[in-house]
């Protein structure tokens, strides 16, 4: 008994320290975002902190938000989707090609979304039912889908979509670009699914421990398939909005978003005690990337250095996330 009494205070002190460090650990990503805003705000207060620039940042991260949200869904189940960028490209290119060939805008968008959803289903089948590692499977689909995008665009830049299509990516509502609203809607829908629906809870269960989830009666395979499907659908939406924003579709227009989406999701994983992917955290991650890129442009930092810094952030995010997983 005496031993127990001795032990309790000895344990409590580290617990306090752990709770403190845990809070700092979890809040570190938000602190980083605030710190970036403060630094750029000091360096260029008039330009960086203006309403116009805040709107610019929101517009610049809108597509990334959608694709990162797609990546988050898959990462909740404990997997990766390396094909989100090329899926977005293919969906945007498909919708554009169909519009140029006379298909009504709404119908072309639906087909584009279906194409992305189909890619998600294929990924889900490969990973969940054929047992291929998600990295290998989505690496393969990334390559294949990237090739399909070249075929759809014939390697060139598609343009000449109907003016009405530009409404999605180029109009503003109350001064805010429409892609921002679409990004918020996609993020909100995915947040609700993850937070308040049975399937969302099951995805977290699968991501936490798929074997335990299976023994608890969760159909692991079906849930992984559904997660990849939703990721494909969301990526397609991102690709279509991007094409509307640029009024053109190239064969690789959204490919680079994959790495940034992974970085944003990793950054967001540090926000939860469990170290799992979550939409709120991903949005903070997207914010960090957006503020960094915009701020560096405003203060005139060379793009090569920007790329180096983005890479360092990805490394830091992955490192923090893995340390977090060990501590959880």
């Amino acid at each position: 008994m005496a031993q127990t009494t001795d032990i309790v205070p000895a344990v409590e002190v580290p617990q306090d320290k752990t709770q403190m460090s845990q809070l700092l650990w979890q809040g570190g990503t938000i602190i980083a975002l605030v710190a970036l805003i403060v630094v750029f705000g000091v360096l260029s207060p008039a330009a960086f902190l203006s309403f116009g620039n805040m709107t610019n940042i929101l517009a610049q991260v809108a597509i990334l938000t959608i694709i990162a949200a797609a990546q988050t869904v898959v990462m909740v189940t404990g997997h990766f989707d390396l094909s989100v960028g090329t899926t977005a490209t293919l969906a945007g290119a498909t919708a554009s090609a169909l519009m140029i060939n006379g298909m009504p805008v709404s119908m072309a968008i639906v087909v584009g979304v279906l194409v992305g959803t189909l890619v998600g289903i294929v990924n889900g089948i490969l990973v969940a039912y054929l047992g291929i590692s998600a990295i290998v499977a989505t690496l393969a689909t990334m390559t294949t889908v990237g090739g399909l995008a070249f075929i759809v665009t014939d390697g060139t830049t598609l343009y000449g979509m109907p003016e009405s299509f530009n409404w999605i990516g180029q109009t503003r509502l109350a001064g805010i670009p429409m892609p921002v609203f679409f990004a918020l809607i996609v993020a909100a829908v995915i947040w609700v699914i993850l937070r308040y629906t049975t399937v969302g809870r099951r995805w977290y269960a699968v991501g936490g421990n798929s074997e335990v989830a299976r023994l608890s009666g969760v159909n692991v395979r079906l849930n992984v398939l559904l997660a990849f499907t939703l990721a494909g659908l969301a990526s397609a939406l991102g690709g279509i909005i991007l094409v509307s924003r640029l009024s053109s579709a190239s064969s690789t227009s959204a490919n680079d978003y994959m790495m940034l989406a992974v970085a944003a999701a990793f950054l967001g994983m540090t926000l939860l005690k469990s170290g799992q992917a979550n939409i709120g955290g991903t949005l903070v991650g997207v914010g960090i990337i957006g503020v960094l890129q915009n701020g560096l442009n405003i203060v005139g930092v060379n793009t090569y250095i920007q790329q180096v810094l983005t890479g360092i952030i990805i490394i830091a995010a992955v490192l923090m996330s893995s340390l977090k997983s060990k501590n959880a």
Binding site: N56, L242, S248, T252, S253, N297, I298, G300, T303, Y304
Partner: peptide
């Protein structure tokens, strides 16, 4: 410097938007 010619339309859009902001 644009990093990737294939995605340079969006890169240049950001360059000029941000420069005009500042």
């Amino acid at each position: 410097q644009a990093l990737n010619p294939a995605t340079s339309q969006e890169e240049a859009l950001k360059f000029v938007t941000d420069f005009l902001q500042a």
